[in-house]
Design a protein around this nucleic acid. Structure first.
Length: 235
RNA sequence: CUCCAUAACGUAAUCGU
C-alpha cells in the first residue's frame, strides 16, 4: 500500500495528474493517505474542483475524510479562494467534532482569511480552546492581508502576553502587516528586536520583508541602503 | 512494544482591468 501511495505522491509532485489518477484507479486498496495524496495533489496543481470531487466521492463511498485529509482540503480552498468550499468543509468539521483538533481549526481559520472572510476567520480564532503559534500567526497574517496593521500589532502583543513565543514565521507575518499598513517605525522596531529580545535570527525572508517595508513606503534610499548592508547574500 | 518509509495546518517580493 505504501508503495502505491509513493507512486501517487510522485506523479502528483511532477504534475502528472493523469498517471496519478490511473494508479489511483488501479490500486487494490486505498487508505486515508491515498485519498489525501490525491486531493492535495489536485489542489496543489490548481485543480480544486477535482480535489473536491474526490472529497465528495469519498463520502459517497462511506469513508470519512480524516483530519489530515480535511486540512489538505482546507488548504486547497485558500489556493483557489474557494469560499463556497470552505463553508462546506466548515459544516463537516463541526459535524465530526474535528474543531477540537487545533490543526484543523488552524486550517479553517486560514482558509476563511484567504477566501475573503476575515470575520469568520476571527470567529474561528476566538472560539479555539487551544491555540498554537500557528493559530496566532494565521490570524495576524489574515488581518495583515486586509491592511489591518494596527490590529495585527495588537494581536501580536496579545500573543506575547499569553505566553506564546513568536517564531520566525510569526515575524514574517508581523513585518508583512507593518509593510502593508505603512507602519515603518513599528516594523523596523520588530525587526531589530528579533534576535536580541526574542532569540529569532532573521532569515533572508525577513530581510526581504524589510526591503519591502521601506520600498512600499517610497523610502527607496533606505531600502537600497538596507540591501547593501544586509549580512546575508541578497537574492 | 519501540523506531523507520508514503499524504497533511501559518511563510516576503514580482501578476493592470
Amino acid at each position: 500500500l505504501t508503495t502505491w501511495n509513493v507512486m501517487l505522491a510522485g506523479y502528483m509532485k511532477v504534475g502528472d495528474m493523469e498517471c496519478a489518477r490511473r494508479i489511483f484507479g488501479e490500486m487494490p486498496q486505498k487508505d486515508q493517505v491515498s485519498w489525501s495524496t490525491m486531493i492535495v495533489g489536485f489542489a496543489q496543481n490548481g485543480c480544486v474542483d477535482d480535489a473536491f470531487g474526490l472529497f465528495r466521492e469519498m463520502q459517497k463511498l462511506g469513508r470519512s475524510p480524516s483530519e489530515t485529509t480535511l486540512m489538505g482540503c482546507l488548504s486547497a480552498c485558500e489556493q483557489a479562494g474557494a469560499f463556497k468550499y470552505a463553508e462546506i468543509l466548515h459544516a463537516y468539521v463541526e459535524k465530526t467534532g474535528f474543531t477540537c483538533i487545533v490543526e484543523v481549526s488552524n486550517a479553517l481559520l486560514d482558509a476563511y482569511a484567504k477566501c475573503g472572510n476575515i470575520s469568520k476567520a476571527r470567529l474561528v480564532f476566538e472560539r479555539m480552546m487551544e491555540k498554537t503559534v500557528v493559530s496566532w500567526t494565521s490570524m495576524i497574517a489574515g488581518l495583515a492581508m486586509y491592511g489591518y496593521g494596527k490590529e495585527a500589532i495588537d494581536l501580536f502583543q496579545e500573543m506575547e502576553l499569553s505566553g506564546m513565543r513568536p517564531d520566525g514565521v510569526a515575524f514574517i507575518s508581523i513585518l508583512y502587516a507593518c509593510s502593508h499598513a505603512g507602519l515603518i517605525e513599528e516594523g523596523s522596531e520588530y525587526f531589530h528586536k528579533m534576535e536580541p529580545v526574542y532569540g529569532v535570527r532573521p532569515s533572508l525572508q525577513h530581510y526581504g520583508c524589510m526591503v519591502d517595508l521601506y520600498g512600499r513606503a517610497g523610502l527607496l534610499h533606505r531600502a537600497y541602503e538596507f540591501v547593501t548592508r544586509m549580512p546575508v547574500e541578497p537574492n
